[in-house]
Design a protein around this nucleic acid. Structure first.
Lengths: 342, 342
DNA sequence: TCCGAACGCGCACACGTGTGCACACCAAAA
DNA sequence: TTTTGGTGTGCACACGTGTGCGCGTTCGGA
């Protein structure tokens, strides 16, 4: 941290007290126009940059938001963070970023470090935290909002913003059943146990409600230590269930990998098998074939979380938010009959 | 910022001065074992969280790194930030993120805000800043490192970490010429004038050196206000030069869009046209066809920048770093003869 | 001329932490 | 007993900023 000019330095040069400088720069009333003018000019000329650290200490607020994120390189979370950052900058706040892979301990230490930095509030993305940690965090008093938490929790002070994963799974099932598919697969992600379970449950329940037999729904999961897209590729290659005509994937990354995996196996999408993703990544529109997917409002997710966090910080209370996903039909899914014809 | 227990509170409860508490918690010598034990226990029991803001003010360093980024949702920058964050967390530092689109003014204001926060150093990614701004920033005294800056600059104190864009373009040209292509196109990105120019120059110079006539090299550019991938799509659709058998794209996003655009036009890749990208995004391996590309060491870019920034902060000096890209041959490029045969 | 009000500014403190210096205490050596 | 040296602790300050309160000055009205 470079030594920089302070209001004391300006005060000395201007022949006034630092109090006067502070008031002049902050546009306080009851400072004579001449003095104010001279101080402002002097500050500019001396290259004064206000010390936000000292201000934070004095004002007891840092105007800083902490964000704990499982994987910053994931394009999905990138869009969410963009939404957060948008609201932050328009609020005059800054974002303190801390990565913490899908791991309880890492997330807790990240949160602790943010609390040391006295952030005004914290957004945790893809949280793996359970009831006991939540209770502990409640006690710490920091306003917090969880985006797409992997575990549900009850809390009076901590809030969540979530996509309706169960509904998303149901929409995918509706879509595939409407296309005539009767034997389907689900490609899951064990790294996100909560949302994975809900998407699969919504999917399976709805299939069953439409009369699909449970035995005709097969499930597979990625290894936990590989990237989603690689997992999708290997699951597609490994799929060895005769008669499966459609796959619903936990997310677009898995689905995009699956497209490549099926292609490598000579299984035509969508003619032999339909593929449905989840998220609507920027890439999904341009894959081959363009991916049918359950779209999440990614930036809105971040913006909503940030808005709710801001009201929490303001002392008011907000409700948990649940955003709804929507079906985006492209070319990777097709009616069964058309598929059989080919 | 919630009111939290301070070392003064602990001191009062322990019946000692805050000095003693501070020393006990920091593991200072010459504090009796009994007193230290009691203080540590008390701190734990009272839920003490050290105030990093006060520490920063006292120590004159914030242990915080500012990052200015053009687009956090861009998967390329996501990987770079990951590299930065890795080094930061292992150094015990935090990352203050500020978005600032491809715009000089925005980047300057972002830097100013980071300086107000008294970050120990700043990394600017995809900078558009010219000599006059650079000189201004030099005067501010903050250690800074630029990753893939769009404009070259001379500076005694500010450092850069760059991929060798010219060499990357040359590699692409070598590859395509070796495959027998004699009429080629370049799909550029005006949003990044510096790297765009270098990649195209390296590409064109090398083509010419290999005997390709200048008139047989066509160039196109995205609109500035749309996403890369959309731009690639439209450029591919608009390409109306008979005889062009290969395209080198500014980056993978444009190339992936181009793959879709050619497909929509019924132009087979690589049989009718070869496509080469730049970056090696995670997706590039799984596109159809898998994308030949000039790979950048993305995480290494971030790590190197962070390492160099750390030494700069430590008062030592470092040299500018130039990392070399490498050719990754996949299926989107193919020999011309084979292409003609189909 | 006198008095109250408004104005312009500084003193002193607070925020939470770390540290140089001094001081008190105790044990061992002279 | 005095000196020396080491040990454990507190005082007072610093970091840079904002603000309640009080003091001196000026101005307008009676």
């Amino acid at each position: 941290m470079v030594r920089r000019v302070s209001i004391m330095d300006i005060a000395e040069r201007a022949g006034v007290s630092h109090t006067t400088v502070s008031r002049a720069l902050r546009g306080h009333t009851r400072i004579s126009a001449v003095v104010r003018g001279r101080i402002i000019e002097l500050a500019d000329q001396m290259g004064y940059v206000p010390n936000a650290i000292a201000q934070s200490l004095q004002q007891q607020q840092s105007c800083t938001i902490g964000v704990v994120i499982s994987d910053i390189a994931d394009p999905f979370w990138g869009e969410v963070v963009k939404g957060i950052d948008d609201v932050c900058t328009s609020n005059g706040q800054s974002v303190l970023l801390h990565a913490a892979a899908h791991d309880e301990k890492l997330q807790i230490t990240a949160i602790r470090r943010l609390q040391q930095r006295r952030v005004d509030g914290i957004i945790v993305v893809d949280s793996q935290l359970g009831p006991s940690e939540i209770r502990q965090l409640e006690a710490s008093g920091s306003p917090m909002v969880f985006i797409n938490s992997q575990r549900t929790f009850e809390s009076s002070s901590l809030r969540s913003v979530t996509i309706d994963n169960y509904a998303g799974g149901a929409i995918a099932a509706d879509h595939l059943v409407a296309l005539g598919h009767q034997k389907v697969a689900y490609f899951g992600s064990p790294k996100r146990p909560g949302s994975n379970l809900k998407r699969s449950l919504g999917f399976i329940d709805t299939l069953v409600a439409h009369g699909v037999q449970r035995s005709r729904i097969v499930q597979d999961e990625c290894a936990t230590d590989i990237a989603d897209i690689d997992g999708g590729y290997t699951m597609a290659q490994a799929l060895n269930e005769p008669g499966v005509t459609a796959v619903f994937c936990y997310n677009d990354a898995i689905a995009l990998g699956a497209l490549a995996g099926f292609r490598a196996n000579g299984v035509a999408v969508p003619h032999k098998i339909s593929v449905v993703g989840f998220d609507d990544l920027a890439m999904a529109r341009y894959s081959w074939p363009p991916l049918t997917t359950i779209a999440q409002p990614k930036e809105l997710l971040g913006q909503t979380a940030m808005h709710n966090l801001a009201t929490l910080i303001g002392g008011a209370s907000v409700a948990d938010a649940v955003l709804v996903p929507s079906l985006l039909i492209r070319d990777s899914s097709t009616p069964l009959l058309k598929g059989l014809r080919s």
